[in-house]
Design a protein around this nucleic acid. Structure first.
Lengths: 152, 152, 152, 152
DNA sequence: TTTT
DNA sequence: TTTT
């Protein structure tokens, strides 16, 4: 089966904090909304229009923990993943669909530490305490894997 | 605003014919479902599992007409585009969301003409009559589309 | 360092067979040229022009063995990877540069077996003996992850 | 011809200023090196290794002018384009090859204006004078360019 | 050196 | 609803 491709590449800003869910087996998942923008000029009115698109990002396990640790609302990230539409039933038993981006790779383009340089450090949120160098992270699953061990 | 990226790249098979809609101003739109597959081996049972993901593809104007003319159900295509989630109200006035892929570029990887070589020509569907050379097309529709808006 | 992206996505045809090199430690590497085409119409003469671009593809270990086994000259493949420019010295001691695409993911879009369906089987080339089902392969390193198990 | 794909996506930092070349017909071209990094841990020594890859970026016409105006050495950009290897002869008449990335789309992820906030403004470089709001730009240059006509 |  |  296959010979197909399902790939998404996004650069956008987190619209909220990463929400974590932990499972019994030790796995975990992180979720957050990501905003991308599209701007154009309306030909009729000649005014500038901006549309924001919201993407539901899902990150797993180690990657989820890295997200939770290093980025927060407002940060800019590069997300690579695949589209997955889940089907569920609402309270009336109707089929509903929800489309998510399952993250397979990512790069942090800013972190709160950077944008919080100076006076912008909020009280009560010391997840990234000052002094910790939250340098941008380029997490590439490939990098860690012995690349060679593919089960084929 | 902006400094963002919203890009999707898919290789998959059309699950149905392209459905066209024509507008008064002369524009048109084509829609079709595209299937991508993901296969993996269930670690517990060691059996091969395939999941099919369905994507709602939307193509516009000249590009839509090319799709309608050259590809049909079962054909394999490369689609590049962006994710767009539309909001609508169902009959009960509840908010509903539908995620589409707005096609900005494409390449045909097969066409019915190819796969129909020989005896496989269905009756009643002569959109691509035998003898017409339906060569793969590598079209960049951005060029034509009233993306209008670019500030240059 | 980092927070960067180096990604290449190609769909093209193998210009030659996969050349394998085996290393002492047990690793191996496969190399082959991949052709992509760009066509446009010369505005002055109104004639159709095609340019072929040749890419030096490098595949490693298990992936290399899969390539050698399943595809050959003329086959169409999807290649995902990263750009790497190697520096070397020519016989005169001058610096030379050679740019390669290091493959990190791939999908076979045709295989000789497919195109050889029927009478087209060449004598003397039984790398893919008839009867062997050379199904397209969608190698995704992610495939190993328990992507399947979470209730979301 | 065709049914192929030649796509590159980079996020990296400009290694130098954009060098402009103007042609008689009114067209122009901008060139600059872009650095991407790859980091991994050496399994033997357990030390962190960083490799920098340099890409030769080529931008045309309007897009080139925007690059020259808004970004400079050190800025981070997203570049989308295609790979092109040019053949040329060195002084000894030997064939040489040079691989470039022809930019077809881009997004500025930082601009000097941003990174120069505060005291970091260098003397002698007022291309982006303070007070000018150099907001990130998301431009799709394909639309305008004759893509075909320049002798590179 | 590929492909249409 | 596709494909292998």
């Amino acid at each position: 089966m296959s010979g197909t491709l399902n790939k998404v590449m996004l650069i956008g800003h987190l619209g909220d904090e990463v929400k974590m869910h932990y499972f019994e087996g030790g796995g975990c998942i992180g979720r957050f909304p990501l905003a991308t923008n599209e701007t154009y000029t309306n030909k009729q009115t000649n005014e500038r229009v901006t549309n924001t698109e919201w993407h539901n990002i899902v990150v797993r396990n180690k990657a989820a923990e890295i997200f939770e640790k290093y980025v927060s609302k407002g940060d800019k990230v590069y997300i690579e993943g695949r589209i997955k539409t889940r089907k569920w039933q609402d309270e009336n038993g109707n089929d509903r669909y929800s489309t998510e981006i399952q993250c397979t790779d990512f790069t942090f383009l800013t972190t709160k530490n950077e944008s919080a340089t100076g006076s912008n450090t909020q009280q009560g949120n010391q997840a990234n305490p000052v002094g910790h160098k939250a340098e941008p992270i380029n997490h590439k699953p490939e990098v860690d894997l012995p690349e060679d061990d593919l089960p084929f």
